[in-house]
Amino acid sequence: MTDLNTLTRLCPAPRQAVHIAWEQVESALGVALPADYKQLAEYYGPGAFCDYIHIYHHGPTEYVNLTGPMPERIRACLRKDFDHGTYPIPHDPARLFTIGGTDNGEYLFWITDPLKEPDRWRIAVNEARGPQWYTFDGTLVEFLTSVLSGQTKVPQFPRDLLAAGPSFTPSRPVLWKTEPVPDQPPVDTAAIRAWAMANGYSVPSRGRIPSDVRAAWEGAIS
C-alpha cells in the first residue's frame, strides 16, 4: 500500500491533520472504511485535486458528504442502468460505493470486495455520459498518487489535468443544511460548458463555472 507520505510529498496537504470520529461515520454507513481513506480525509479535508477530482468527505455539504444522500442515489442510478442494460457496468452496483466525482461528471467508486476487508478495495471510474469504465488495481491513495504523478492516465480525465502540476485546493466552509434535498442528479457541468461555448461565453475547461454563465444557462433551459 502506498504510504500517504508519498502523496503529501507530491501534493502537500494544506493544513494540520484533524482527528475525525470514524466510529460514528462507520456506524452511520454500516461498514468499515479503508485506513488510507481515513488518513487522506484527516490530512487534506474537503477539497479538489487539480481543481478537478473531488473526494467525498464527512462534510461540508450533502452533495460531497460521505454519509449524505449522493452515494446511494448514484448506486440506484447504476442499478437502473444495470437492470435495463442502458450501459454495460463491469461491476455489480451493490458492490460500488461512490467515493468522489469530477468537474466533468465522472464518479470514483470503491469496489467493495471483499466487503469486510476495506484495505483491499480497488477503485473504478465511470464515464460521465457513456459506457466506458476504468478500473485501478489499488487503493484510493495509490490511485491519487499514480494519477497526480502522471503514471496513470485515466481515459475519462482531461489530457491537460496536470498542466499546472499536482495541486489540492481546500473547499470553503459551507454551513450544513438540514432541509430535504430534492431527488435529482447533480448538474451536468460539461453540458453547461458546451452550451456556453456554443453561445459565445468564455468558460474554463475545468473548475468552477462563472455564476453569470450558470445563471444564463439556467435561464435558457427554464
Results as ranks from 00 to 15, higher is better:
Ser167Gln: 02
Ser167Thr: 13
Ser167His: 04
Ser167Phe: 02
Ser167Lys: 00
Ser167Tyr: 02
Ser167Asn: 06
Phe168Thr: 01
Phe168Lys: 00
Thr169Lys: 03
Thr169Cys: 01
Thr169Ser: 07
Pro170Lys: 01
Pro170Ile: 06
Pro170Ala: 09
Pro170Gln: 03
Pro170Tyr: 12
Ser171Arg: 01
Ser171Met: 11
Ser171Asn: 15
Arg172Leu: 13
Arg172Glu: 13
Arg172Trp: 07
Pro173Met: 09
Pro173Ser: 12
Pro173Phe: 09
Val174Pro: 03
Val174Cys: 11
Val174Phe: 12
Val174Thr: 13
Val174Arg: 07
Leu175Ser: 13
Leu175His: 08
Leu175Pro: 02
Leu175Gly: 10
Trp176Glu: 12
Trp176Gln: 10
Trp176His: 11
Thr178Trp: 12
Thr178Leu: 14
Glu179Lys: 13
Glu179Thr: 13
Glu179Leu: 11
Glu179Arg: 15
Glu179Val: 13
Glu179Met: 13
Pro180Ile: 02
Pro180Arg: 02
Pro180Phe: 09
Val181Leu: 08
Val181Lys: 03
Val181Glu: 11
Val181Phe: 10
Val181Thr: 13
Pro182Ser: 10
Pro182Asp: 10
Pro182Phe: 09
Pro182Leu: 05
Pro182Glu: 13
Pro182His: 03
Asp183Leu: 15
Gln184Ser: 13
Gln184Thr: 15
Gln184Cys: 15
Gln184Ala: 14
Gln184Glu: 15
Gln184Trp: 08
Pro185Ile: 04
Pro185Asn: 05
Pro185Arg: 04
Pro185Glu: 05
Pro185Phe: 05
Pro186Asp: 06
Pro186His: 03
Pro186Phe: 04
Pro186Ser: 05
Pro186Gln: 04
Val187Ala: 15
Val187Arg: 03
Val187Asn: 04
Asp188Cys: 08
Asp188Lys: 02
Thr189Ala: 14
Thr189Leu: 15
Thr189Gly: 09
Ala190Leu: 05
Ala190Met: 03
Ala190Gly: 07
Ala190Glu: 07
Ala190Asp: 07
Ala190Val: 02
Ala191Gly: 14
Ala191Asn: 05
Ala191Met: 10
Ala191Val: 01
Ala191Ser: 15
Ile192Arg: 00
Ile192His: 04
Ile192Ser: 03
Arg193Thr: 00
Arg193Cys: 01
Arg193His: 00
Arg193Ser: 01
Ala194Arg: 11
Trp195His: 11
Trp195Gln: 03
Ala196Trp: 00
Ala196Leu: 03
Ala196Glu: 03
Met197Phe: 05
Met197Val: 06
Met197Ala: 07
Ala198Arg: 05
Ala198His: 08
Ala198Gly: 14
Ala198Trp: 06
Ala198Lys: 08
Asn199Ala: 10
Asn199Ile: 12
Asn199Val: 08
Asn199Gln: 08
Asn199Glu: 11
Asn199Phe: 12
Asn199Met: 11
Gly200Leu: 08
Gly200Asn: 08
Gly200Tyr: 06
Gly200Met: 08
Gly200Thr: 06
Gly200Trp: 06
Tyr201Gly: 10
Tyr201Pro: 04
Tyr201Trp: 15
Tyr201Gln: 15
Tyr201Cys: 14
Ser202Val: 11
Ser202Pro: 04
Val203Ala: 01
Val203Asn: 00
Pro204Trp: 01
Pro204Leu: 05
Ser205Phe: 00
Ser205Arg: 00
Ser205Lys: 00
Ser205Ile: 00
Ser205Asp: 07
Arg206Thr: 01
Arg206Leu: 00
Arg206Asp: 00
Arg206His: 06
